[in-house]
Amino acid sequence: KTVHVDGVEYRFNNPEEADKFVKRLVKEKNGNVEVRGDTYHVE
């Protein structure tokens, strides 16, 4: 899984860790998540 945040790319081998990371980011930023294939885009 890959997570894109503000143009920075984070790669996770463990999908659960990627999910936790995304949830935390969305809370912090009050942002939205767009999923494209295996990539999460957080804005």
Results as ranks from 00 to 15, higher is better:
Phe12Ile: 02
Phe21Ile: 03
Lys20Met: 13
Arg36Cys: 15
Asn13His: 06
Lys20Ser: 13
Asn30Thr: 06
Glu43Phe: 14
Val22Ser: 00
Asp38Cys: 08
Lys29Ala: 10
His41Tyr: 15
Lys27Glu: 11
Val5Phe: 10
Asn30Val: 06
Thr39Phe: 09
Val3Gln: 00
Glu34Val: 12
Pro15Leu: 09
Asn32His: 13
Glu17Tyr: 00
Tyr10Met: 04
Glu34Gln: 14
His4Ser: 10
Val26Pro: 03
Val5Ser: 00
Val3Phe: 02
Arg11Ala: 07
Arg36Thr: 08
Asn32Gln: 10
Val26Lys: 05
Glu17Cys: 14
Lys29Gln: 10
Lys27Leu: 12
Arg11His: 14
Phe12His: 01
Tyr40Trp: 12
Asn13Cys: 15
His4Asp: 02
Val8Asp: 03
Glu28Arg: 03
Lys1Met: 13
His41Cys: 15
Asp38His: 02
Phe21Tyr: 02
Asn30Met: 11
Asn13Trp: 02
Lys23Ser: 13
Val8His: 05
Arg11Lys: 11
Thr2Arg: 05
Phe12Cys: 14
Tyr40Met: 09
Thr2Glu: 01
Gly37Met: 09
Tyr40Lys: 11
Lys20Pro: 01
Asn30Tyr: 12
Lys1Ala: 13
Asn14Phe: 03
Val22Ile: 13
Pro15Ser: 13
His41Met: 13
Tyr10Asp: 05
Asp19His: 05
Gly31Ser: 09
Arg36Ile: 14
Val33Glu: 07
Glu34Asn: 09
Gly37Pro: 07
Asn14Lys: 01
Val42Gly: 10
His41Pro: 09
Tyr40Ile: 14
Phe12Asp: 03
Arg36Asp: 12
Asp6Met: 03
Glu17Phe: 00
Asp19Glu: 12
His4Glu: 08
Val42Asp: 12
Val22Leu: 12
Gly31Asn: 08
Asn30Ser: 11
Lys29Ser: 13
Glu43Gln: 11
Gly31Tyr: 14
His4Lys: 13
Glu43Ile: 13
Gly31Ala: 13
Glu28Cys: 14
Gly31Asp: 06
Leu25Glu: 07
Glu28His: 06
Gly37Leu: 08
Glu9Pro: 02
Asp38Leu: 03
Arg11Ser: 12
Val8Lys: 08
Asn30Arg: 10
Arg36Val: 12
Val35Arg: 05
Val33Met: 08
Asn30Lys: 08
Arg24Phe: 08
Arg24Thr: 12
Phe12Glu: 05
His4Gln: 09
Ala18Thr: 01
Phe12Tyr: 00
Glu16Tyr: 04
Lys27Pro: 04
Glu34Gly: 04
Val3Ile: 11
Val5Trp: 11
Thr39Leu: 07
Val33Trp: 09
Ala18Arg: 05
Ala18Asp: 05
Asp38Glu: 06
His41Ile: 15
Val26Ile: 13
Tyr10Thr: 09
Asn13Arg: 03
Glu9Thr: 05
Leu25Pro: 00
Lys1Ser: 10
Lys20Glu: 15
Lys1Glu: 04
Ala18Trp: 07
Lys1His: 13
Asn32Thr: 13
Tyr40Arg: 06
Phe21Ser: 02
Pro15Tyr: 10
Lys23Cys: 15
Gly37Tyr: 12
Val3Met: 01
Glu34Ser: 12
Lys1Trp: 15
Lys29Phe: 15
Lys1Pro: 07
Val42Asn: 12
Asn13Phe: 05
Glu16Arg: 01
Tyr40Leu: 11
Leu25Lys: 03
Val3Asp: 00
Gly31His: 13
Gly31Val: 15
Asp6Arg: 02
Val35Asn: 05
Lys27Gly: 10
His4Arg: 11
Val5Ala: 01
Val5Thr: 02
Gly37Asp: 12
Asp38Gln: 02
Thr39Arg: 08
Glu28Met: 07
Asp6Leu: 02
Val3His: 01
